[in-house]
Protein backbone atom coordinates (compact mmCIF):
# COMPACT_ATOMS: atom_id res chain seq x y z
CA UNK A 1 0.00 0.00 0.00
CA UNK A 2 1.46 3.37 -1.00
CA UNK A 3 1.87 6.04 1.69
CA UNK A 4 -0.50 8.53 -0.06
CA UNK A 5 -3.27 5.91 -0.46
CA UNK A 6 -2.88 4.84 3.17
CA UNK A 7 -2.94 8.47 4.32
CA UNK A 8 -6.15 9.19 2.38
CA UNK A 9 -7.96 6.30 4.09
CA UNK A 10 -6.90 7.07 7.67
CA UNK A 11 -10.20 8.58 8.78
CA UNK A 12 -11.96 5.32 7.94
CA UNK A 13 -9.20 2.88 8.90
CA UNK A 14 -8.37 4.62 12.20
CA UNK A 15 -11.59 6.23 13.40
CA UNK A 16 -14.39 4.48 11.46
CA UNK A 17 -15.59 7.83 10.11
CA UNK A 18 -18.68 7.53 7.92
CA UNK A 19 -21.33 9.84 6.47
CA UNK A 20 -25.11 9.87 6.91
CA UNK A 21 -27.37 10.97 4.09
CA UNK A 22 -29.32 14.06 5.15
CA UNK A 23 -32.24 13.09 2.89
CA UNK A 24 -32.83 9.37 3.55
CA UNK A 25 -30.64 8.75 6.62
CA UNK A 26 -28.57 5.97 5.08
CA UNK A 27 -25.11 5.54 6.65
CA UNK A 28 -22.29 5.06 4.13
CA UNK A 29 -18.96 3.51 5.12
CA UNK A 30 -16.66 4.41 3.53
CA UNK A 31 -18.19 7.77 2.56
CA UNK A 32 -19.43 8.34 -1.00
CA UNK A 33 -20.15 11.47 -2.98
CA UNK A 34 -23.67 10.34 -3.94
CA UNK A 35 -26.12 8.37 -1.81
CA UNK A 36 -26.82 5.07 -3.68
CA UNK A 37 -30.34 4.96 -2.19
CA UNK A 38 -31.74 8.44 -2.94
CA UNK A 39 -28.97 10.10 -5.07
CA UNK A 40 -28.63 12.96 -2.60
CA UNK A 41 -25.24 14.67 -2.33
CA UNK A 42 -25.77 16.12 1.14
CA UNK A 43 -24.32 14.27 4.10
CA UNK A 44 -23.44 14.78 7.75
CA UNK A 45 -20.43 13.19 9.42
CA UNK A 46 -20.91 10.21 11.72
CA UNK A 47 -19.03 7.17 12.95
CA UNK A 48 -19.91 3.49 12.73
CA UNK A 49 -20.18 1.38 15.88
CA UNK A 50 -17.11 -0.51 16.98
CA UNK A 51 -19.26 -3.55 17.77
CA UNK A 52 -20.96 -5.92 15.35
CA UNK A 53 -21.66 -9.54 14.44
CA UNK A 54 -20.01 -11.84 11.95
CA UNK A 55 -22.21 -12.27 8.90
CA UNK A 56 -19.94 -14.67 7.01
CA UNK A 57 -16.28 -15.65 6.96
CA UNK A 58 -13.55 -17.63 5.26
CA UNK A 59 -10.14 -18.93 6.36
CA UNK A 60 -7.03 -17.85 4.46
CA UNK A 61 -4.52 -20.68 4.59
CA UNK A 62 -2.25 -19.69 1.68
CA UNK A 63 -1.57 -16.02 2.45
CA UNK A 64 0.09 -13.25 0.46
CA UNK A 65 3.70 -12.68 1.51
CA UNK A 66 2.85 -9.83 3.95
CA UNK A 67 0.68 -12.17 6.02
CA UNK A 68 2.85 -15.30 6.14
CA UNK A 69 3.36 -15.12 9.90
CA UNK A 70 -0.39 -14.89 10.59
CA UNK A 71 -1.70 -17.87 8.55
CA UNK A 72 -4.13 -19.47 8.87
CA UNK A 73 -6.26 -16.40 9.55
CA UNK A 74 -9.97 -15.69 9.19
CA UNK A 75 -11.42 -12.86 7.12
CA UNK A 76 -15.02 -11.89 7.83
CA UNK A 77 -17.83 -9.65 6.69
CA UNK A 78 -19.08 -7.99 9.87
CA UNK A 79 -22.50 -6.39 10.26
CA UNK A 80 -21.95 -3.18 12.21
CA UNK A 81 -25.60 -2.12 12.29
CA UNK A 82 -27.10 0.85 10.40
CA UNK A 83 -26.92 -1.32 7.26
CA UNK A 84 -23.10 -1.07 7.32
CA UNK A 85 -20.88 -4.08 6.68
CA UNK A 86 -17.09 -4.15 6.83
CA UNK A 87 -14.63 -6.69 5.48
CA UNK A 88 -11.72 -7.33 7.84
CA UNK A 89 -9.43 -9.88 9.39
CA UNK A 90 -10.51 -11.61 12.59
CA UNK A 91 -7.73 -11.54 15.19
CA UNK A 92 -7.32 -13.39 18.50
CA UNK A 93 -9.62 -16.12 17.27
CA UNK A 94 -8.95 -19.72 16.28
CA UNK A 95 -10.62 -20.79 13.00
CA UNK A 96 -12.65 -23.45 14.85
CA UNK A 97 -14.07 -20.81 17.23
CA UNK A 98 -15.70 -18.80 14.41
CA UNK A 99 -19.46 -18.77 14.16
CA UNK A 100 -21.89 -16.81 12.02
CA UNK A 101 -23.64 -14.34 14.33
CA UNK A 102 -20.65 -14.21 16.70
CA UNK A 103 -20.36 -10.82 18.46
CA UNK A 104 -17.11 -8.98 17.75
CA UNK A 105 -15.62 -5.54 18.22
CA UNK A 106 -13.15 -3.60 16.10
CA UNK A 107 -9.64 -3.29 17.52
CA UNK A 108 -6.67 -1.24 16.31
CA UNK A 109 -4.03 -3.51 14.77
CA UNK A 110 -1.17 -3.46 12.33
CA UNK A 111 -2.66 -4.50 8.99
CA UNK A 112 0.48 -4.93 6.92
CA UNK A 113 3.96 -3.62 6.33
CA UNK A 114 5.65 -2.72 3.09
CA UNK A 115 8.67 -5.05 3.12
CA UNK A 116 11.42 -4.34 5.64
CA UNK A 117 11.72 -0.60 4.95
CA UNK A 118 8.26 0.59 3.87
CA UNK A 119 5.48 2.11 5.93
CA UNK A 120 3.56 0.24 8.60
CA UNK A 121 -0.15 0.28 7.81
CA UNK A 122 -2.56 0.32 10.75
CA UNK A 123 -6.30 -0.07 10.86
CA UNK A 124 -9.08 -2.23 12.27
CA UNK A 125 -9.48 -5.94 12.72
CA UNK A 126 -12.30 -7.54 14.61
CA UNK A 127 -11.76 -9.59 17.76
CA UNK A 128 -14.25 -11.75 19.68
CA UNK A 129 -16.27 -9.63 22.12
Amino acid sequence: MSAPKYWREMAQRYRFEAVKCKKCGRVLFPPRLVCPACKSREFENTRINDKGTIETYTIVRIPPSQFTDEAPYPVAIVNMGDNVRVLCQVADCEPEELKIGMPVRLEFRKIQQEGSSGILAYGYKCVPE
Binding site: E70, A91, Y122
Partner: peptide
Protein backbone atom coordinates in the same frame (compact mmCIF):
# COMPACT_ATOMS: atom_id res chain seq x y z
CA UNK B 1 2.09 -9.71 21.40
CA UNK B 2 0.61 -11.12 18.19
CA UNK B 3 2.44 -10.28 14.94
CA UNK B 4 -0.11 -7.50 14.32
CA UNK B 5 0.40 -5.85 17.72
CA UNK B 6 3.07 -3.34 18.65
CA UNK B 7 3.60 -0.34 20.92
CA UNK B 8 1.30 1.80 18.76
CA UNK B 9 -1.65 -0.60 18.61
Amino acid sequence: PSPDQDTIT
